[in-house]
Design a protein around this nucleic acid. Structure first.
Lengths: 188, 188
DNA sequence: GTCTATACCCGGATAGAC
DNA sequence: GTCTATCCGGGTATAGAC
């Protein structure tokens, strides 16, 4: 029998899902507590504050996203598919577990006051991951203009995420892939 | 001597600026009240709730954005420039008055609970405006594929707005324009 | 480490006078 | 219509026992 994970891990899992699904600001601490089956004091003993829990949950989510994306890249057959794999990974990642509304990292930054360091840091790390890997994957197709192409794709990925607020999220990622494909078709 | 605008208008102006700059959720009613120089009861007499004020402020903002974009289009010299004018309008609009953080309409939808009708409606109207005019402007360049091109540009515009959370907002609009230009360069 | 119970406070909204 | 003063709830955080 697999032992039940500790309260800390249950809090992290609950927070990651609920914050991604309902937004950080829109998710009361009570909701996380009841899902995790944990008392308030336990949360504050481990993470200090709701924001502290968010930071830990986002860090965990970033690792999961990193892995999911890498797996999608590994499964792609050629250079072009590897570059577009980010959208497949996005679609799969978004619906793993409770479907997320748009993007937990953008949500964190959008919801926090402008001077909040925690949310800004988490989003910055997500951005660095996106930019870095997009550059690597763009290199075979764009050569010394890989950074330029990666920047275009970063805009398209961010657009696909934001489009999830305007329309059905599944359609948003599909459209994002199509837009990126159109961009690649005309490249050079 | 120009008469001081009424309390209602001052509330709308204050709300539009503060909500765009600091986000709806992050802006307390008190901040709007003190900037407008108005008492709490006046706000609730006119708009019923903070959300009601938001709806009215977003409607006003949508009209202003519509006009600003139309003006940028009118000032553009050719078909291509007219299609890209949305980014110039965005840059100018964002810094008119108190600079907005990213996008007041996306912010409203992101911050509101998923079933909130008010914010969803405001964002839907913004999306309809974007999609409709982008299609018109895309027609001279894309002919019967104008809708397809417009959808790509809608993703890029949304991406430019979201990128304002990842990086400097001015750089975000500039990058968005560059990405759209790259897309147009390779079109067909 | 975890629980129960509670304190505290911020922020949206209202009462009633003018 | 507008003001001053106040209420009230939801939500974060803590005290103290086990």
């Amino acid at each position: 029998m697999t032992p039940q994970p500790g309260a800390r891990q249950r809090l992290l899992d609950a927070a990651e899902e609920l914050f991604a699904a309902g937004g950080f600001a829109g998710t009361p601490v009570d909701a996380v507590l009841s899902r995790a089956g944990v008392a308030p004091a336990t949360l504050y003993a481990h993470f200090g504050s709701k924001t502290g829990l968010q930071a830990a949950a986002l860090a965990a989510r970033l690792r999961r996203w990193d892995d999911a994306w890498a797996a999608a890249v590994a499964a792609a057959p050629d250079d072009r598919a590897r570059l577009l794999a980010v959208f497949d990974a996005l679609a799969a990642f978004r619906t793993s577990g409770t479907p997320s509304r748009w993007c937990a990292f953008l949500d964190a930054a959008a919801g926090a006051p402008a001077d909040d360091g925690t949310a800004a840091t988490a989003l910055a790390e997500d951005t660095a991951l996106l930019r870095g890997r997009l550059r690597e994957l763009a290199a075979p197709l764009a050569g010394d203009r890989a950074a330029e192409l990666a920047e275009h794709l970063l805009v398209v990925v961010s657009g696909a995420l934001a489009m999830a607020l305007r329309t059905d999220p599944a359609a948003a990622t599909a459209q994002g892939r199509a837009t990126a494909a159109a961009l690649l078709d005309g490249w050079r």
